[in-house]
Lab assay of single mutants.
Amino acid sequence: LQAFIKTLTGKTFTVEMEPSDTIENLKAKIQDKEGIPPDQQRLIFAGKQLEDGRTLSDYNIQKESTLHLVL
């Protein structure tokens, strides 16, 4: 599935991932794409901060969901 990552500066980019991917995997993909170390990334979806060990499906993240990236 493709999801949108929106930063506080208003920049939006897309990442490809599977519902079974962990938040940790997602942070690694963001690092590959944007060069931001995972330990500096905080991802917010539906008002909740996402925990590394959980999966996208745990948070009911669907295709074309928008996640907010806070540094």
Rank of each mutant, 00 (worst) to 15 (best):
Q49V: 15
N60T: 06
T22L: 09
R42E: 09
K63V: 09
G35D: 05
E64W: 14
G47A: 03
K33S: 10
G53K: 12
F45E: 01
L43N: 00
K48V: 14
A3W: 11
K11M: 08
I23Q: 01
D52G: 06
L50R: 00
N25S: 11
Y59D: 02
E64C: 09
E18N: 13
Q2K: 14
A46Q: 14
V15M: 07
K48Y: 09
K29R: 10
S57I: 07
E64Q: 10
K29E: 03
A46S: 09
N60I: 08
E24I: 10
E18Q: 13
T55K: 12
I23S: 01
F13E: 01
L26N: 01
K29T: 05
V15T: 02
T14D: 04
V15A: 01
S57E: 11
T22S: 07
A28I: 13
P37V: 06
S65W: 07
D58Y: 15
D58F: 15
K63P: 15
P38N: 07
V70D: 06
N60C: 05
T14W: 09
Q40V: 11
S20L: 09
T14E: 07
Q40N: 09
D39F: 10
L8D: 14
K11C: 06
K33G: 04
Q49P: 11
E34C: 12
V15R: 00
D52I: 05
D58P: 01
E34G: 06
N25I: 14
E34D: 04
L67M: 08
E16I: 12
A46V: 06
S20F: 11
H68C: 11
Q62F: 11
E51N: 06
P37Y: 05
L1C: 06
T66M: 09
L1E: 04
L26G: 00
E18M: 14
L8A: 14
I36L: 06
F13Q: 00
V15E: 01
G35K: 05
T55F: 08
T55P: 07
P37F: 05
F13I: 09
T14Q: 07
L26S: 00
K6L: 12
F45N: 02
L71F: 09
Y59P: 01
G35I: 01
E64F: 15
Q41R: 00
D39R: 10
V15H: 01
Q31V: 03
T22R: 06
I36A: 04
D21W: 11
A46G: 12
F13H: 02
I30K: 00
N60M: 08
V15S: 00
A28S: 11
Q62T: 15
S20A: 08
R54A: 09
H68T: 13
K11G: 06
E16P: 08
D58C: 03
D58M: 05
T7D: 07
A46Y: 09
E64T: 10
K11W: 10
L71W: 10
I36R: 02
L43R: 00
Q40P: 01
F13Y: 04
R42I: 15
R54H: 12
P19S: 11
Y59H: 03
